Simulated assay, not measured.
Amino acid sequence: MKVNINNKETETAAKSVAGLAEELQLPAKGVAVAIDNKLVARTDWSITPVEEGDNIVIIKAFCGG
């Protein structure tokens, strides 16, 4: 299915946010995910579905200043 990740159309087979995180090899910590402008709590990643056409924003924290 096709979703938009950070404004880029992406093909994914993931059925949940957790599956998408694994597919994209996201780090275990320091990552936030929002679907259609709604933040998804990490504890809900495994139960939050990813659906065709979703607008997903992934933010990675980094050190620096």
Rank of each mutant, 00 (worst) to 15 (best):
I59R: 05
D36H: 04
I58T: 09
N6Y: 04
E23Q: 14
E52T: 09
E22C: 00
D54Y: 07
N4Q: 10
N6W: 02
G30F: 13
N7L: 03
V17I: 12
T43S: 13
G65R: 02
L39A: 06
A21K: 11
A13S: 13
D44N: 14
K60C: 00
T43I: 06
I5M: 04
S16Y: 13
A28Q: 12
Q25S: 15
A18C: 07
G19R: 02
E52M: 03
T10M: 07
E22D: 11
V50G: 06
E51Q: 12
L39N: 04
E52R: 00
G30A: 06
V17K: 07
K38P: 00
A21W: 08
I35E: 03
T12W: 01
V50F: 15
V40N: 09
E22N: 05
N55V: 02
N6V: 00
V3G: 04
S16T: 15
N55Y: 10
E23V: 02
T12S: 14
N37R: 13
K2R: 12
A18E: 15
K60H: 14
I35S: 01
V33I: 15
G53Q: 10
E9H: 02
A18L: 15
V33S: 01
A28G: 06
G19K: 02
A28K: 11
V33H: 01
A13P: 10
C63G: 14
G64V: 01
P49S: 05
V57F: 15
N6G: 09
A13H: 15
S46Q: 07
Q25A: 13
L20P: 02
A28H: 09
D36M: 05
Q25T: 09
A14K: 02
D44F: 13
E23R: 09
V33Y: 03
Q25N: 15
L20T: 02
P27N: 03
I59D: 07
S46V: 00
D36K: 08
G53K: 12
N37Q: 14
E52G: 05
A28Y: 11
S16W: 13
A61L: 14
T10R: 00
V31H: 11
E11W: 05
R42E: 09
E52P: 11
K60E: 10
I47P: 00
K2W: 08
K29I: 05
E11A: 08
P49T: 02
D44M: 08
